[in-house]
Nucleic acid binder design. Sequence first.
DNA 1: CCGACTTTTCGAACGCGTTCCGAAAGTAGC
DNA 2: GCTACTTTCGGAACGCGTTCGAAAAGTCGG
Lengths: 251, 251
Amino acid sequence: MAPPPPPPASSASSASSASPPPQGRTGRPRLTSRAQILAAARRLIDRDGWEKLTIRRLAAEAGIGATTLYHHMRDKGDLLILLLNDYVDRLERPPLPEEPRARILASATALHDALAAWPWAAEVATTDGFVGLLDESALWMVEGIVSGAVGHGCTQAQAVGLFRGVWYYTVGEILVRAHSAGRRAAGGRPTGFGSLDASRVPHLAAIGARWPELAARDTYPEGLRALVDGLLAGATPTPSGEAGRARGDAG
Amino acid sequence: MAPPPPPPASSASSASSASPPPQGRTGRPRLTSRAQILAAARRLIDRDGWEKLTIRRLAAEAGIGATTLYHHMRDKGDLLILLLNDYVDRLERPPLPEEPRARILASATALHDALAAWPWAAEVATTDGFVGLLDESALWMVEGIVSGAVGHGCTQAQAVGLFRGVWYYTVGEILVRAHSAGRRAAGGRPTGFGSLDASRVPHLAAIGARWPELAARDTYPEGLRALVDGLLAGATPTPSGEAGRARGDAG
DNA sequence: CCGACTTTTCGAACGCGTTCCGAAAGTAGC
DNA sequence: GCTACTTTCGGAACGCGTTCGAAAAGTCGG
């Protein structure tokens, strides 16, 4: 029954720093470093757009065979996470508020904005253990949410639960936004709103043609506030360790 | 700035009923009906599993050429939505509570459970205008959420906003769950929890190895309740049409 | 110097979703 | 019975992510 969502880990398949083992290594030496591949990927994206980032094109840009790339990364998702860490690394890190609730909201908004500004985030954001694949330089957003929850009096379990709720809501918004934008860029129909049976779905029929207008608004902040307030209200305000663990969580 | 999320429409590219134009039609007559294709798809899924549902295999199962399928549906996403509607049609429709908040929760849970039980939902749930592609026999879940919101005193804008919040949260949970389950089925590493810098991310470091255990719990219901309560609390309780539209929504 | 051993490189191939375009098979008008 | 016209059919091909296996290029122990 319990779904297995993103757990963190220090360094998984895709580490961040280019490990320096050019000394006394056995086997054929590499002709291309990971840094060179990432640089080629950035060049390719800047020049042709991120949807043109394919394995073969990247290999051509880097001047190597396509299959050689698979000795530097497990699959394309790995490459995207590498690029994401690289992108977040360059991001400036704003100061977070001290007040717990404000810190949660600021951290979540930073997380959301980082993903929203990264058009190809949708392709990896739901990877198993995604959060655990982030560099420590990106984990400050997760830390901000968890620390805010703990600072408000949540137990560890409640804090992780709050983060997961925020994560689900955020990643859902990002993915729907990304796919809508993609289709909208293509020649999509305006999705008018035709004949709904008013006796079966009266409220939807009443909204009718207004739906597209209403659904086009950016309601992420309101939803985030509502979610966080609701979760914080359900959390025990006893700041002592694990007390009251039976309340407010899946018992 | 405003993202364009799922708007409904009565019947888009993928209608539900097999239209009956076998009379006086010009052009070459079809050898295969849409119903036959869907039946072949269900057969294929039941026999080999849904991950084996590919265009070519489906064509072979239906006894037609692969490219012929594209005269019956726009693309594979269309096929999946056809199958989803077909699946939801057979679903029993539980009675919904009268009380607005309870109706919202019941409708959202039904939506969530329907998607969660449909393993390939993740591939289409974020399609642009997804909700609008649903048959009326599936829209009762959306109607339940919107009607609950309106019944609580929300304006149309607030009701649509509430639905979108619930939709984002739900689809995020579904997608993360689906991708986690997929990887976990394969030989995934246990995602332990290595060495985090306690001075940079103290709370994450403190949680440490407990994260997987805490993240494995099913916290969807708590998050849903929190989100709905928060959004209802922010909505104006004036049940008169569009009054108070400036409050609680994107002004 | 020479065979193990290890690692990298990459051409060939697979199955995928999808597009192109010519051939086939009907109806409609004459 | 012909000639349009319209629609369906499906083989060929494209680019995609990914796997396989053989060749290449180093280190190491003797």
